[in-house]
Design a protein around this nucleic acid. Structure first.
Length: 436
RNA sequence: GCGGUCAUAGCUCAGUUGGUUAGAGCACAAGAUUGUGAAUCUUGGGGUCGCGGGUUCGAGUCCCGUUGGCCGCCCCA
């Protein structure tokens, strides 16, 4: 029957699907506004260069890209970060600090689809620009937690793993590794959770085998799960960068603790995140059961605004994807059936009665009530059934008798009581009903 | 990009060793029912059996290809 089908990985939103999506967007938006973030939006289509400049050519494989009629190489946006960096960079000197912005938008990646991942998806993005210290991380991680908790999720359902690319860098530097080798080790760390010690293979092929003692230290570092553990390990190392960095950690975790959010956050240096532009703290949210892919991810990217042609401007941000998030809510039974019930359903006897009803329907709708009525004449019994099914609170009955008496019969569909009201007082009576 | 698996009505599924005009439940619509509620009964609309080719007297069923879904890998986060 359907000759045309949706492109692979793309979704269609029938009314009940869109109601669910709107519910999610509404709570995300509410959380961001409570935190004082301002909403922005930007083009879906961007110059291909914007993404090449950021992550190198290999990301092209994942882009929906093409040449437009003007010969420009363009791409559907695969993420928001480069775009917002351009927006903020262009007006950085005029914007009041701190710059706290958020968006809810659709993104496109040409990837193999899997559970929780499609070729088009929505993300909530929140970013803070202009704040180099961990105060920005506190604010963002708090927002992330609020975005998840506003749906009824708790620390039983999800947690945030907090890590730090700087700390890794300083630590490995203090252990005597050069920059290329440090990046190699970070690659190992990224894969270690999944592959175990197999993950060292790639490093060994490139740089030769790691010294056994060194490898032991790296693995031990990976196991650290607390600030106290970090402090213990690093106290023996020294180095002039590690001390201040630990102070940042204390400030960040102390701030979250003071907000009452410490129970959501775990130190976990196994997170390094692949995206090339992260420079400091990085964090990811996961469901506790570990059944789903990451719910959200983010981190600091202090160099990106400048790399994209703006001024030097520190930045932190995170994104929540809608697909995995919706799966989690569904699994926890936290997606309420979102009704779209009318306030009032009109039961109409015939054509003359219909005209009388139309006048009231218009008045009531103007007054802000959602009013439904059958488009075609049908039996009263059927109309009452329809009224009940619609889950309206009130039925207004327009029959021959009522019309003759100049009244409307109001039926409370909840307790099945009814009474007559003079037409002229209808709006007032309805208003009284709904205001109590 | 690789591998596994699946595809019959809007949804969930049945369909015999290959055999007449492909069925059921749910949903939708009409009627019983033009003055009162989630019920019941009756009836109806809805299918290129994902698509294309092959084998056969005959294919929803067997074979090949293809498209799409799901799962895993790769990749990515």
């Amino acid at each position: 029957m359907a000759t045309f089908q949706t492109l692979p990985g793309f979704r269609e939103f029938y009314p009940e699907d869109l109601a669910r999506r709107n519910h999610i967007f509404r709570l995300w938006r509410q959380s961001a506004q409570v935190f004082g973030f301002a909403e922005y939006d930007a083009p879906i289509l961007e110059p291909l260069e914007l993404y090449k400049a950021k992550s190198g050519e290999e990301i092209e494989a994942q882009l929906f890209s093409f040449v437009d009629k003007g010969g420009r190489e363009v791409a559907l946006r695969p993420e928001m970060t480069p775009t917002i960096c351009r927006l903020v960079g262009a007006r950085a000197n005029a914007l009041k600090r701190p710059i706290k912005w958020f968006s809810i938008a659709e993104f496109y990646r040409y990837e193999r689809m899997q559970k929780g991942r499609g070729r088009s998806f929505n993300q909530f993005n929140a970013d803070i620009f202009g704040e180099p210290g961990p105060e920005a991380e506190i604010e963002l991680i708090a927002l992330l937690i609020q975005c998840l908790c506003s749906f009824g999720l708790t620390e039983q359902d999800f947690y945030i793993r907090l890590s730090d690319r700087n700390l890794w860098f300083y630590y490995l530097e203090a252990l005597g590794l050069d920059e290329a080798r440090i990046h190699g080790v970070l690659g190992v760390v990224d894969r270690h959770e999944k592959y175990g010690d197999e993950a060292f293979k790639a490093y060994t092929e490139k740089f030769g085998a790691l010294d056994a003692a060194l490898q032991g230290k790296i693995l031990a570092f990976l196991q650290i799960k607390s600030l106290a553990g970090l402090e213990r390990t690093l106290a023996t190392i020294g180095g002039d960068k590690l001390g201040p960095r630990l102070a940042d950690w204390r400030k960040l975790l102390g701030g979250l603790e003071a907000m009452g959010l410490a129970r959501y956050v775990e130190v976990d240096l196994g997170v390094v995140r692949g995206l090339a532009y992260y420079t400091g703290f990085v964090f990811e949210a996961f469901d506790r059961k570990g059944a789903l892919r990451a719910l959200a991810g983010g981190g600091r990217y202090d160099d990106l605004v400048q790399k994209l042609g703006g001024p030097a401007l520190p930045a932190v941000g995170f994104a929540i994807g809608d697909m995995t998030f919706a799966l989690l809510l569904e699994q926890r039974g936290l997606l309420p059936a979102i009704g779209s019930a009318p306030d009032i359903y009109c039961v109409i006897g015939g054509e003359r009665e219909r005209m009388a009803a139309f006048a009231d329907i218009h008045l009531l709708r103007t007054a802000g009530y959602r009013v439904e009525y059958p488009l075609k004449d049908s039996a009263f019994g059927k109309q009452f059934k329809a009224a009940a099914e619609s889950q309206a609170k009130l039925a207004l009955i327009y029959g021959t008798d009522e019309l003759a008496k100049g009244v409307v019969k109001i039926r409370d569909l909840t307790d099945r009581t009814e009474h007559e009201v003079p037409s002229a007082q209808l709006v007032t009576v309805v208003r009284d009903f709904f205001s109590t």
